[in-house]
């Protein structure tokens, strides 16, 4: 049994699926606005983990040029993507939380069932 086909190799991808499913569950069934934000953050972590896990290549080195070995180095695109996505995610989370604070100030609650004057 090779490393590629073993369960341990697929563990990151199983974690990705779990994180996205938990996040989706929170988005669909949790009425607390903060928990909705947490659900989105979980999905974001899942997607980021997915990108990082894709960037792994067996037997290659991380592309750090200080004391670089002469063997093959991995292409650093997934790391760059994840870094960008984390920064964007931080901005979005901050924005969502500030809206949640604003909603709490105006409505006095962060229950999604009670903060729905826009309907129909």
């Amino acid at each position: 049994m090779t490393l590629e086909s073993s369960a341990i190799f697929n563990l990151p991808f199983i974690t990705v699926v779990l994180l996205i499913i938990i996040g989706m569950y929170a988005l669909m069934f949790k009425r607390n606005l903060i928990k909705i934000v947490i659900g989105l953050t979980l999905i974001e972590s899942g997607v980021n983990l997915f990108l990082i896990a894709l960037g792994y290549r067996k037997g290659c080195y991380a592309p750090i040029y200080t004391n670089a070995p002469t063997t093959a180095m991995v292409f650093p695109t997934p790391q760059a993507l994840t870094l960008t996505s984390i920064v964007i995610g931080l901005a979005v989370t901050a924005l969502m939380l500030s809206f949640a604070v604003l909603i709490y100030k105006k409505y006095g609650t962060i229950n999604a069932e009670k903060t729905r004057r826009l309907k129909g």
């Binding site: 988005l27 934000v37 989105l40 979005v92 969502m96 809206f99 949640a100 909603i103 903060t115 826009l118």
Partner: peptide
């Protein structure tokens, strides 16, 4: 409220 829905 609208902005929260939009951003989510």
């Amino acid at each position: 409220e609208a902005a929260f829905k939009y951003v989510v």
